[in-house]
Structures are given as C-alpha cells and as structure tokens.
Design a protein around this nucleic acid. Structure first.
Lengths: 154, 154
DNA sequence: TATTGTTATACTCTATAACTATA
DNA sequence: TATAGTTATAGAGTATAACAATA
C-alpha cells in the first residue's frame, strides 16, 4: 500500500513554498526555538522541569538569595506568573525562601542541597541535549549562533 | 532623587548572573524570537495581523489554492487551531475557499485581491521591521544567522 | 480503512487590576 | 509615594478526542 506508484520517500505530499517566511529572522528563530524546546521537554521530563522551571532554578542555583523581582526582570516573567512556579519548587523541596538581609518586603530564594544536586545534573543534561538538537551544526557554528542571537535581545 | 549616591545609569539594581543560561541555544533562540515578535506585534497591528495570521496569509499568498492540511503541516499548526484563523481571515475578505480541483474533501484557500494587496504591504513592513529589530547585526551576520537557524529545524 | 475539515473541550501560558506590608 | 510579593481573573495559545463527508 506504499510500494507502488512512483517512489515518494515517505510522507511528502506537501510541496508548499515557504521561501518568503524563511527569509524572516523572527520566523526562523521561533521555529528553531520550538524545535529545541521539544527535545528539552522530553529529556528534562525526568527531572520534572519544564523550560521555565529550569530557567528559574538555574538562576537561583547560580544566584543564591536572589529575589522574585530580580528573577522576573532577568527572565522576562511577570510577577503574578512567578508565584505559582516558586511555590511549586518550594513544595518539592528544591528551594527555600529566607528573609532578605536588608529589605523586609523581599524574600531571598535559596537552592536546597537537593536543589543544587538536581540542577548540577539537569544542567549537564540540558547542555548535552542542545548539541543533539543542533547536530547539523559544528561547535564553532553553535558558538557563532549564540553570539548573534544575543546581539538581538541583549 | 537620582542624582546622588554613586552613579548608577538608570534602572540597574539587577546584578543577576545568567551566564549559564546564555550558553544555551534554546534559551537564546527563545529570547531573540520574543524580542523580534514584540516589534512585529507593534508594527503589524496596523494590518490587523498577529504573527500566526501573517504566516498563514503569507503561505496562502505565495501558494494560491493551498489546503488547510498543507498549511498545518508547513507551519506546525494543529488542524483544530487553524479553523478559527481561516474563518476570521475569510470574514475579513482576505481569502476565499474554493472547491479543490481533485479532492472533494478539501477546500483550496485563495487570497482575494484585497488579501494580496494587504500582504504585499505587510511583507514589506515585516522585512523592514526585522532589520530594525536586529540593528546590531550587519547584513551578512543576519544572513548567517538565518542559515544557522534553519539547520536546526529544517 | 484513511484523510479533510470541523466541533467541543481542556490545559497551559500570558496579561491586567488590585490588595498587603514594608520602604 | 513607591516597591515586593501576592491574589484573582481574563485572555491567548496549544492540546486531544471524536464526528461527518469523501478518498
């Protein structure tokens, strides 16, 4: 039921011209990001971390005592949307909230030993996964790509 | 009230270290995409087009008679989520659905004269906007970036 | 039996307004 | 008065299941 006719590889049947969209940086950046995120979701599911959870934990991991407000500013997350994430991470015993040394309104976010241990593994997994998700790129191409992307949003 | 102390530029107050995240391709691609999309939303609002609407219209514009199924496959949109978009574009008089020449189940999507006219302008605006949104990049850097991104998702 | 287009629906993500307590 | 954290809630985006018409 798929061995006669001409010789179409497998799915095919979509000779749609997307050449204009492919000239757009925004289109390409979004498609590439979604492609990598797809692999990320698979491999990091073992840690119970989605991309946002991972980003939040990573910043806390490398910035013990950081406040929610700082997290929001550095990751472009709106404060109301961070609340649930923080509560979830705290409930899992990955972080703890301690009084801020100088600002009585704020709370410092600290990784627990369990959180540090998890993130050490998770970050290794993430770094590996990215190479697999961009296997058509050489190491230097990957480095160039990162530098060019940062020129856009930083 | 901001002229004493040391000499902090303006907002500051966020010495958060995100150097690890900045090594990740997925993180950088997502941040860059969101940055460009932000500008896109501003400039294309005049046409009543959001990024998805624009992509759909662009594919129809360059592929008159394309089917919904082909659109979904080429833009990674799920069929149920395309229905509303198509209906909206048709209601605005930008496209029309005609019987498919060979497949009685399908409908061919065609741009109206109004749709063609709109997209000619919209695509010019989009191409200009992308240059502004990546003004720190040279033309050749922009070209390199597009090529590298396509190696990830294509 | 498989596929196109569709409906209904649920889940997630993102955004805005407003409150409290501290500064 | 302004800011950190929070609550409630609305809106947009994304996901699966299932159906009618046609292949």
């Amino acid at each position: 039921m798929a061995t006669s006719k001409k010789a179409a590889p497998a799915p095919a049947a979509q000779p749609v011209d997307t050449s204009y969209l492919q000239t757009l940086l925004g289109y390409n950046a979004r498609r590439a990001a979604l492609s990598i995120i797809g692999v990320f979701l698979e491999r990091l599911a073992a840690y119970g971390l989605k991309p946002v959870d991972f980003s939040v934990m990573s910043v806390i991991h490398h910035n013990p005592g950081v406040t929610s407000r700082q997290l929001c500013a550095s990751l472009a997350i709106l404060p109301p949307n961070l609340v649930g994430l923080i509560q979830s991470l705290e409930a899992r015993g990955l972080i703890e909230r301690l009084p801020h040394p100088t600002d009585g309104r704020a709370l410092g976010l600290h990784p627990t030993a369990k959180g540090v241990s998890l993130m050490q593994q998770a970050e290794l997994t993430a770094s590996e996964l990215e190479i697999d998700a961009s296997s058509k790129l050489s190491a230097s191409q990957r480095q160039t790509l990162v530098q060019l992307l940062q020129k856009i949003y930083l």
